[in-house]
Design a binder for these strands. Structure first.
Length: 970
RNA sequence: GCCGGUGUGGCGGAACUGGCAGACGCAGCGGAUUCAAAAUCCGCCGCCCCCUAAAGGCUUGCAGGUUCGAUUCCUGUCACCGGCACCA
């Protein structure tokens, strides 16, 4: 299948565009455009204020999702998005934009650490090797990144600022009245000024001035955006680490089968829930795929309802629940609390053995198990609550279908109108009372009826809502609850605060120390970075209590406040302290990397304010403003951020939500100028591969299959027929394509063209090696059109062919339009059509006849340049239009030189119009493009074929769409 | 179960705002060139009916609807893919 030529051909046609020739051309251009420092090649984009910066040009910030360099190198999915962004960036350069297109490495995290533990090679070594390999591969594709801006998240110069941003969150709180983050010092000053009463340990409250420093600190800690909180996690003592839910099966670790405990663990959290509403609202302002916005909306999961406090028999503390259906309060016949709920512990303390047993069982039941079996389980607590509407004494149960992490971890159960409550009531013989009548859904007692309707059986001594529609009933109940002081309107979110600690080595250390009393204190920003200490043994510790690997670095963890860099006003320098040994999760570094690219070398800011403003802030199209805005103005500015962000939809929720959260914090604190990080987001589809499937749906590796006939495959060993299907590429199926091999066989330009020609960028599509030759032949044909394969001389027509000139204008127009739409497959199709039309027939012996003129070839080279840059640069050089120096604005073809097209060339004088009768085409007719409807109708009705088809029937109606078609109804 | 997406020739795909379905590429077939082959150039190429051709009929997952006209809009339905999943 190799496109390599034979030796004989090479001798005869030394300038034939073969794979070897393409590779030589590509490597030569990559060398000739290389920067003297050897750090890359291509386009270096200066910042405002730097030499060579042109303020008159518009800006375009285009970003690829941060790659995680694995030891396996690039797979064919990586270059798909990267080629797309390279095309649009090169196009924007030809259109005269200042283009920021950076690349770097997301290099902390679990995969590298697991690999290191398995191989015994330090993650720093393997990670750096993987980065070097990734960079080499990306450069071989000819992607014109600004390599002068490259960095990795593991660089101390970078994670210094990751730690700095985390400290900003630590030092801030969310002010609900202003709906934004503010320095916590402002809160502290206000509390002192107002001498506010604050809650202190033991449930008492005390004036600020009467509180101890500790009490004040504890109060403030409850407001921090980065705070120490407790969350139930899957802890595996044997593995010495926390496990994700999907890594736990039947209470045991997926790997090794070791017992896993669900235990509460104190860890660093982010108060992302404070931003839930803004994260939701601002989704309306960004140009993102509808699907992604929907996913984030559902992830945040806003729901409106009420909080209701039920009095508990024999307990001063009420039981608070959240419900979206306060109108069904009369139907609440029992209560359920999560097994982790504080009330359960109180009840169990009375010596209820059965309850204790149930709770112990439920607590260790993993989420996976709960999902596998939705059979209702539970246990009565022996406690009772009072339904405030009916005054009835109702039992309080505990059951694991109520989740501690949502709402208040407690519900009022309305079995008549909630499927889950109904199942539970049936299982434990609890009373069921209908309180809503739904049209078309009579309540029979056989099943719950969920939905809106009218309240029934809802009249009591204190409140009556009978007959009210659900919406009104809700309002009435909430108003009554508020008046009684036992409830209120409340908004609840599915989104939970973000667990930000990992018991792992390969991550950013937290700039935090603890004193002897366990109080935490920040490291002063001036002492950053807090460098990850080198550790020879970074494998997890087997233990019943979490002991992160960093705990082994005793010399590092045990230090003094002064040595750690704690401000002397906070702790005296000689105070012994212990460092935080958890590290940040893999997400940390990717939450703000797009900002660092704006000024990657700035030693005094995480991003230079001027650079940040230039690249991130812009006026909205049609706002009538131009130039760089001074500050964000919602009336005239774009929501902001990166102009085009391209990456897979697997990051649609977590990464894109976390980054938005960080960005909004920084925006509130005045460190960035836009409310959103990514103005426009696009997901490229997945590149799949063919795989083979037996009749029983099991899969067969590709190398164990033989094609016996066109499209017919059998398993080689058994001769059984197998079906060809589309599947993800995987090592086990042996259907993985290595980009290096494809480049060797066809060259990088062909690879780029093939991936863009496969189909729409957003669609997932199967790799088919057989199809690559199509775009390779296109390049060969284009080369042959312009260059003599024997001599290497340019072959140009002396005179332009008017038909080709017209087609060239149309192609220029279409390619520009399609690039703007990211419709690269159709842009390439248009260029193929142009080249096919201009190709000389074999019978044409005089090369100055046919083909294109030098000028036409030059314009063609420019529109091809974004797609196949090496080819276009080589052609451009032969035509004398390529500068070919490393520091040119584009490296190759000139910036701002996208060819003009003449709009007059896009219209035809005469058009062919089909004539339909009853919607079926019966004739075709050539009419002047400007002909009016009446004239076209007359021409159509006079046409011989039309007359014959009408066959004397009366014409009832004639529809004429000028320039399109004629439809005659008889 | 819920939400979202996608279904077009042998294959990947194209089609503006409801207006000629199948651009372009692959595969296949035929021809020119060649001693021959490769490469190249030219042409054919949705399905059915048919010896062939003309003519005709059918065709955008399936069944309906709206319309002069539907791949496009609406209703129902099937299949596949993705996400969420006891969220009160």
């Amino acid at each position: 299948m190799s496109a390599a030529s034979t030796a004989a051909e090479t001798n005869e046609l030394p300038h034939r565009y073969t794979a070897a020739y393409a590779n030589a051309v590509e490597e030569r251009w990559q060398r000739s455009l290389a920067w003297p420092d050897g750090k890359g090649y291509g386009h270096r984009q200066p910042n405002p204020g730097e030499p060579g910066f042109d303020a008159s040009r518009p800006k375009f910030y285009c970003l690829d999702m941060f790659p995680y360099p694995s030891g396996a190198g690039l797979h064919v999915g990586h270059p798909e998005g990267y080629t797309a962004t390279d095309i649009i960036c090169r196009y924007k350069k030809l259109k005269g934009f200042n283009v920021l297109h950076p690349m770097g490495w997301d290099a902390f995290g679990l995969p590298a650490e697991q690999y290191a533990i398995a191989t015994g090679v330090h993650p720093e070594v393997t990670t750096k090797k993987a980065i070097d390999n990734f960079r080499r591969q990306l450069q071989r594709f000819g992607f014109m990144y600004d390599w002068s801006r490259e960095f990795a998240t593991i660089d101390p110069d970078y994670y210094r600022w990751t730690q700095w941003i985390w400290l900003k969150a630590y030092e801030s709180w969310f002010d609900p009245s202003a709906r934004k983050a503010r320095p916590i010092a402002e809160l502290e000053a206000r509390l002192a000024r107002e001498d506010a009463a604050i809650a202190v340990a033991g449930g008492a409250s005390r004036k600020w001035s009467a509180c101890t420093k500790r009490e004040r600190q504890a109060h403030l800690d409850g407001f921090r955006l980065a705070y120490l909180g407790t969350q139930t996690v899957n802890w595996c003592p044997k593995l010495g680490t926390v496990l994700a839910n999907e890594e736990v099966i039947d209470g045991r670790s997926e790997r090794g089968g070791f017992p896993v405990l669900r235990m509460p663990l104190k860890q660093w959290m982010f108060r992302i829930t404070a931003y839930a509403d803004r994260l939701l609202e601002d989704l309306a302002l960004v140009d993102w795929p509808e699907m992604t916005r929907t996913l984030q909306t559902e992830w945040i999961g806003r729901s409106e309802g009420a909080e209701i406090r039920f009095a508990v028999d024999g307990d001063a503390e009420p039981l608070t629940v959240f419900t979206t259906r306060p109108d069904t309060l009369f139907g609440a016949t029992y209560m359920v609390v999560a097994p982790e709920h504080a009330l359960v512990a109180k009840a169990a303390a009375r010596g209820n053995a059965e309850l204790a047993k149930y709770v112990a069982w439920a607590k260790n039941r993993s989420d996976i198990d709960r999902q596998a079996s939705k059979e209702k389980t539970g246990c009565a607590t022996g406690l009772h609550a009072v339904n405030p509407a009916t005054g009835a004494r109702i039992p309080i149960w505990t059951a694991d279908y109520v989740l501690m992490g949502y709402g208040t971890g407690a519900i009022m159960a309305v079995p008549a109108h909630d499927e889950r409550d109904f199942e539970f009531a049936k299982a434990f013989a609890l009373p069921i009372v209908q309180v809503v009548e739904i049209e078309g859904m009579p309540f029979t007692g056989e099943a719950a009826t969920a939905g809106e309707g009218r309240a029934v059986n809802s009249a009591g001594a204190h409140i009556s809502i009978d007959g009210l529609a659900t919406a009104d009933a809700k309002k009435a109940v909430i108003a009554w609850l508020e008046k009684q002081g036992i409830g209120a309107l409340r908004v609840n979110y599915r989104l939970r605060d973000w667990l930000f600690s990992r018991q792992r080595y390969w991550g950013e250390p937290f700039p935090i120390v603890y004193d002897a009393d366990g109080n935490h204190h920040p490291v002063a920003p001036s002492h950053l970075p807090l460098v990850l200490p080198p550790l020879a043994d970074y494998s997890p510790v087997e233990s019943d209590t979490p002991q992160p690997p960093l705990a082994k670095a005793r010399d590092w963890t045990h230090t003094t406040a002064g040595a750690a860099g704690v401000d002397p006003s906070v702790l005296p320098p000689a105070t012994p302290v212990v460092r935080e040994t958890n590290t940040m999760p893999g997400w940390a570094g990717s939450c703000w990397y797009y900002l660092r690219y704006c000024s990657p070398k700035d030693a005094s800011h995480f991003v230079s304010p001027e650079a940040e403003r230039y690249w991130m802030l812009s006026h909205r199209a049609g706002s009538g403003k131009s130039g760089v805005p001074v500050h964000y103005d919602p009336a005239t500015c774009h929501t902001g951020g990166v102009d085009l962000y391209v990456g897979g939809s697997e990051h649609a929720v977590l990464h894109c939500l976390y980054a938005r959260f960080w960005h909004k914090m920084l925006f509130d604190l005045g460190h960035v100028s836009t409310p959103e990080p990514f103005g426009r987001l696009f997901h490229q589809g997945m590149i799949t591969s063919y795989a083979f499937q037996r009749a029983d749906r099991s899969l067969v590796p590709t190398d164990q299959v033989t094609e016996v006939a066109e499209g017919e495959f059998v398993e080689t060993a058994t001769g059984q027929k197998v079906a060809q299907i589309v599947a993800k590429m995987s090592k086990s199926l042996k259907n993985v394509i290595n980009p290096d091999d494809v480049i060797a066989d066809y060259g990088a330009d062909t690879f780029r063209l093939y991936e863009m020609y496969m189909g729409p960028l957003e669609a997932s599509k199967p790799w088919n090696t057989r199809d690559i030759v199509g775009v390779f032949r296109f390049l060969q044909r284009a080369w042959r059109l312009a260059v003599d394969e024997r001599t290497g001389e340019v072959l140009a027509a002396a005179q332009p062919d008017p038909k080709i000139e017209k087609l060239l204008h149309r192609t220029i127009h279409k390619v520009a339009e399609d690039i703007e739409k990211l419709s690269f497959n159709t842009a390439i199709a248009a260029m193929i059509e142009l080249v096919n039309a201009a190709t000389r027939p074999q019978s044409m012996t005089d090369p100055t006849q046919g083909g294109m003129t030098r000028d036409q070839l030059g314009r063609f080279a420019r529109i091809l340049w974004p797609f196949a840059p090496h080819f276009a640069d080589e052609l451009g050089a032969r035509l004398g239009i390529t500068r070919g120096t490393a520091d040119g604005p584009c490296g190759g073809i000139y910036a701002g030189s996208w060819p003009e097209h003449d709009p007059a060339m896009l219209v035809d004088d005469e058009v062919e119009m089909p004539v339909q009768i009853q919607g079926k085409i019966k004739a075709r007719l050539m009419v002047p493009a400007k002909a009016d409807a009446a004239a076209v109708e007359a021409l159509a009705l006079a046409h011989a074929d039309v007359v014959a088809a009408i066959a004397g029937r009366p014409v009832r109606k004639v529809v004429v769409v000028p320039g399109r078609m004629v439809n005659i109804v008889v």
